[in-house]
Nucleic acid binder design. Sequence first.
DNA 1: ATCTTGACCTCTA
DNA 2: CTAGAGGCCAAGA
Length: 105
Amino acid sequence: MTFFSRVYALVQQVPPGFVTTYGDIAMAMGTKDARRVGQALHANPDGELTPCHRVVAKDGRLAPHYAFGGSVEQYAKLKAEGVTFVDREHVNLEKHRFTFDTPTN
DNA sequence: ATCTTGACCTCTA
DNA sequence: CTAGAGGCCAAGA
């Protein structure tokens, strides 16, 4: 089990129509390093297995380096799931913010 | 073991 | 809003 694996596990726990932030995922794992989350998602093995499009920055901004088509794909997928946007690059975090339930397995 | 890289976050101007 | 700088830490070579 690597750091990346844990990131994937948490991301996969995010239900459709909801989004979370790198920082939240990091905190859920007991760390503050949001960068590790980003690295993990960049090394993302599968877009279906790991819905990286549901992971955004603290400002609700979409990932500029989405590994499966860029922020455009992210926007499309999130919108298709019912996520609302305040801008073409920012999701309504306050409305779709997802919090993890102490996944400390 | 060392060195480089990085989907981030926060502060300052 | 943009631009620059610092910090933090794991993966890969």
